[in-house]
């Protein structure tokens, strides 16, 4: 059931991507830049113009927010709030990937284990992780590990379930090949099972990232004395509206950076997969 299985690779389709890659690269980069940033820029302009005509103090203009952004986040707050948040987020993501891929691989490899655990996993996945925050607070206190646990409790599921599915769907002929050459268990894991399921694993990680960001903010809003979520909640309660919006802006930027970083990693890890799909489509 892997997407590439059985699809005939067009003969003589090799080197499809090398020829035209560098031609007109300048134009394409410029066009790409325009496409990527054109609409955000336009939205900013419209917002700026609109805010000059509005007196609603809950919706300040972009300039006010930009000023608040620099005042609020450049300097000490970066160390006090932004870095701790990023630290928790990073730790939570890494732990989710490790736990999700490891457990997912084991569960995916054994059919009986899969059938045994599936109903339970579906149940746990259905629980919205924020309801666990009070419980986690009780058990772990108001600590970084509590927040990491909350992040993992939400972000691990898409990774886990996608890994199970990816491992389960490893192509039967590829497995038979490994059997016939008596590939050892570790080699099989490293050279067959994990690469074969890597497209699904990456899909899971992509979904997990956005969940992790959400849970980072929520866990900090609940119980914290530092962090982006804590700071934004603080601004809200104190009617520091422009500062609050600047925090939301920062969250959006963190999300975008996360997506960009993920995209870079994915392109490296799944180069074979994208290359193969390009050839198949040609």
């Amino acid at each position: 059931m892997t997407p590439y299985a059985g699809e005939p690779v067009t003969p003589y389709a090799r080197e499809v991507v090398s020829g035209s890659r560098f031609r007109g690269a300048g134009i394409r980069i410029a066009a790409g830049f325009l496409f990527a940033f054109g609409l955000p820029f336009l939205a900013l302009v419209v917002w700026g113009v609109w805010s000059t005509r509005s007196t609603n103090r809950f919706f300040p203009g972009p300039l006010t927010i930009g000023e608040a952004f620099v005042d609020t986040w450049v300097g000490r707050a970066f160390l006090d709030d932004v870095l701790p948040s990023l630290y928790r987020l990073g730790l939570g993501i890494v732990a989710s990937i490790v736990v999700g891929v490891a457990a997912g691989t084991v569960i995916g490899l054994f059919r009986w284990l899969r059938e045994l655990l599936e109903p339970l996993l579906e149940f746990f996945r259905a629980i919205p992780p924020p309801v666990l925050i009070p419980v986690a607070m009780l058990l772990l206190g108001i600590t970084d590990s509590m927040k990491v646990v909350v992040i993992v409790s939400g972000a691990v599921w898409p990774i886990l379930l996608n890994t199970i599915e990816g491992v389960r769907a490893t192509d039967s002929v590829m497995t038979e090949t490994a059997d016939s050459f008596q590939i050892t268990w570790w080699e099989r894991l490293w050279f067959l099972v994990l690469p074969a399921s890597s497209p699904r694993i990456m899909t899971g990680v992509r979904q997990g990232l956005s969940v992790a960001l959400i849970l980072m903010v929520i866990s900090e809003m609940f119980a914290s004395s530092s962090g982006l979520g804590y700071r934004i909640a603080y601004f809200q309660r104190n009617y520091l509206i422009a500062e609050m919006w600047s925090g939301i802006l920062l969250l959006g930027l963190v999300g975008v950076l996360l997506a960009v970083a993920f995209g870079l990693v994915e392109r490296r890890v799944l180069r074979w997969y994208h290359g193969m799909r390009e050839v198949t489509r040609a």
Partner: peptide
């Protein structure tokens, strides 16, 4: 014994190079 399967597209590992594929069974 070594087997050459009919479905070469599913028997070779696409994430490995040609060399990597040939080398894999020799690792152990």
């Amino acid at each position: 014994m070594a087997v050459v399967f009919q479905e070469y597209g599913r028997s070779l590992y696409p994430w490995l190079t040609v060399r990597g594929n040939v080398e894999l069974p020799l690792r152990h």
